[in-house]
Amino acid sequence: MVKRYGFPLLLALLLAAGTPALAAAPLPDIPKAIKGEQCVEDTGFMRRNHMALLEHQRDDTVQRGIRTRQHSLKHCFTCHVVQDDHSQPVTAADPRHFCRVCHDYAAVQVDCWQCHVSIPEPSATSLRGGQP
């Protein structure tokens, strides 16, 4: 039972991140996106389902050549970038990285960064502004 409801419970805790911490461990301070007001889906939906969207997109892209931007990993980093003291985007090797903040808290290891780049494409940030 704990296993079944553990994740929604955790989400509830995450959603309550703004309120003073009641739990033992300090809640993660989720970094704000550097631009845009709205994610590609509702924030709550993304928190629950981002992994399903990414996995679906991943198979579509590699196996069928579908390269829509909306749910692509690369697209995440056009907004979800954390910059260091020198205004440079931090990689997933840094605990401040957008993905790391929650994943470290939830102790969920992801297998993305062995191969994928975890910061925006250099050209992407300079050339593309705003929303797709």
Binding site: K3, R4, E41, R48, N49, M51, A52, L53, H56
Partner: peptide
């Protein structure tokens, strides 16, 4: 659990 999540994800995606 993760299957359920994936399914609900698919539904919403549709």
């Amino acid at each position: 659990m993760s299957d359920e999540k994936a399914l609900s994800g698919e539904k919403v995606m549709n």
